Computed example of a mutant assay.
Amino acid sequence: MRVMVLVKATTDSETGNMPTAELLEAMGKFNQQLAEAGILVTGEGLKPTSQGKRIAFDDASRTVRDGPFAATSELVAGFWLWQVKDMEEAIAWAKRCPNPMPGPSELEIRPLYEMEDFANLS
């Protein structure tokens, strides 16, 4: 099963504050453990939404909006894509993660659709 682990944004990530050397080292070690266990597919940090765009769709119409975007707690600051045997394994690995932000932060784990999810859609 593949899951996307989303690192939720905080005020620090949205203002572009870079992580400390200690946090970068801790996250590097965690990523290495994920890789050695065969869990890590990929993972990246995202720049603040002030550097992003949103495209709104309404039938044939497309509207581009510049960031920053509101509701920081609903934004994503980074992600991993993991290959795990089940949600319990994903949770166990997520609990081992160093706190990805200075202060309170949150991870969200979402399973990806797989081709077999669409097999019975006729």
Score class of each variant (00 low, 15 high):
M1I: 09
L6W: 05
V7T: 11
A9F: 02
T10F: 02
T11R: 14
G16A: 08
N17L: 13
M18R: 15
M18H: 14
T20A: 13
A21S: 11
L24Q: 15
E25D: 13
A26C: 11
M27R: 09
G28L: 03
K29A: 10
A37W: 00
I39M: 04
L40Q: 06
V41Y: 08
V41M: 10
G43A: 12
G43C: 08
G45A: 15
L46Y: 10
L46T: 07
K47L: 15
P48M: 00
T49H: 04
G52M: 00
G52C: 01
G52Q: 02
R54G: 00
I55V: 15
I55E: 10
I55F: 09
A56H: 15
F57R: 11
D58T: 14
D59C: 04
S61T: 11
R62H: 09
R62L: 03
T63V: 14
T63D: 10
V64M: 08
R65G: 05
D66P: 05
G67M: 02
P68I: 00
F69L: 05
F69N: 05
F69V: 03
A70Y: 05
L75E: 01
V76I: 15
A77C: 04
A77F: 01
A77W: 00
F79S: 12
F79N: 09
W82G: 00
W82K: 00
W82V: 02
V84D: 01
D86A: 06
A92Q: 11
W93Y: 11
W93L: 07
K95V: 07
P98D: 02
P98M: 03
P102T: 13
G103V: 05
G103F: 03
G103M: 04
P104L: 06
S105G: 14
E106A: 09
L107P: 02
L107G: 08
E108K: 01
E108A: 05
I109G: 03
I109C: 02
I109D: 02
P111I: 12
L112F: 15
E114I: 04
M115Y: 13
M115R: 08
M115Q: 12
E116Y: 14
D117P: 09
F118L: 12
A119H: 11
A119V: 10
L121E: 12
S122N: 13
S122Y: 12
